[in-house]
């Protein structure tokens, strides 16, 4: 019982992170219909910025965890969204209007590029940072096993919920959100109505990158070790989450992230840690077999 509760907590924490990354995939897919393979690497870039930031602040003698976290979050969001913008500008904008596979290949190239850039400039070795937030709340003890909710897990869930609220408001209520949704529905028509489509797409990429940046900082803080390869695995998982939830659907992305996080946590605890990725992908395949457009996705209507 306590063990199950613990896995539920771990799974939800992991799922929140996947969900944050998955939103970037799903938004980009919604607006330009491409899989942005470099998105996982954007998240990885943010994790490296976080490590540099935390180390720098510690060197300057900032010992308040709240202040350090806030400053690093702000810096990571700023720099990472510039990365998101640049990736779109360099690798995708020149390809607007070409065949569907072309930007996909370009994004795979961008992903390889970013991974190797970070490996070259920041080194290939694992970067550890000292744990920042320790402690937690003991919830339940059964048969000598204590389920524990750590403060960093609380923080991750709180930040995710707050971001989601802000994000939903941004998409539903602001003029940028309206423009963004309009572009998703019909880019040509939106352009005819005098909206700068390129700008909206750029902002979408920056927004997705900003959410991935927050995920990167949170993961760095939570696990304390990163390397240049984390982007690939997280990216694949988050993309799976986006597809599982129905690609193009924002609540779907979050739901998919949570499901993937829970599957991973429970599977690796009760069955086998080695095969947790197999479980994730198998469940994805099963879901797609019975609901080809994902859990919350609208089925694509084909017109002749």
């Amino acid at each position: 019982m306590a063990l199950a509760l613990q896995q539920l907590i771990n799974g939800l924490t992991l799922g929140a992170v996947y969900g944050l990354i998955a939103i970037g995939y799903t938004m980009v897919y919604g607006i330009i219909g491409m899989i942005n393979f470099a998105h996982g690497d954007i998240y990885m870039v943010s994790a490296f910025i976080a490590v540099t930031g935390f180390t720098l602040l510690a060197a300057f003698g900032v010992h308040s965890v709240a202040l350090a976290l806030f400053v690093v979050l702000a810096l990571a969001v700023l720099f990472t969204s510039v990365y998101g913008w640049a990736v779109e500008r360099v690798a995708y904008r020149p390809l607007r209007g070409s065949a569907r596979l072309v930007p996909l290949i370009s994004s795979i190239g961008m992903s390889i590029f970013l991974q190797n850039l970070v490996q070259l400039t920041q080194g290939a070795r694992v970067k550890p940072i000292p744990p920042m937030i320790t402690g937690g709340v003991d919830l339940l003890t059964v048969d000598g096993f204590t389920a524990r909710l750590s403060y960093s897990q609380i923080l991750i869930v709180l930040v995710t919920v707050a971001l989601l609220a802000a994000f939903t408001w941004l998409i539903q209520r602001t003029s940028f959100g309206r423009r963004q949704r309009a572009c998703e529905q019909d880019r040509t028509m939106t352009a005819l109505l005098g909206i700068d489509v390129d700008r909206t797409i750029s902002l979408t990429f920056m927004l997705g990158a900003a959410l991935a940046a927050v995920a990167g900082v949170l993961v760095t803080m939570y696990y304390g070790v990163i390397d240049f390869y984390i982007g690939f695995v997280a990216g694949i998982k988050a993309f799976t989450a986006a597809v599982l939830g129905g690609i193009g659907s924002l609540p779907g992305a979050m739901l998919g992230g949570l499901i993937i996080g829970l599957i991973e946590a429970f599977w690796s605890n009760y069955l086998s840690a080695e095969y947790k990725d197999v479980a994730t992908f198998s469940i994805l395949i099963l879901v797609l077999l019975f609901r080809p457009s994902g859990l919350l996705g609208r089925p694509e209507v084909e017109k002749v």
Binding site: Y29, I35, R100, L104, I236, F239, T240, V243, I247, E274, Y275, D277, V278, T280, F281, S282, L284, I285, L288, L289, P292, S293, G294, E300
Partner: peptide, 26 residues
């Protein structure tokens, strides 16, 4: 499974299949 899937859904299923094979071999 690809019979029912289109485009990018197929892409992720084949990608997942590739990873499954690799993880099983590993």
């Amino acid at each position: 499974p690809s019979l029912r899937l289109r485009g990018d859904y197929l892409a992720i299923v084949t990608l997942g299949f590739g990873e499954i094979i690799r993880v099983v071999l590993l």
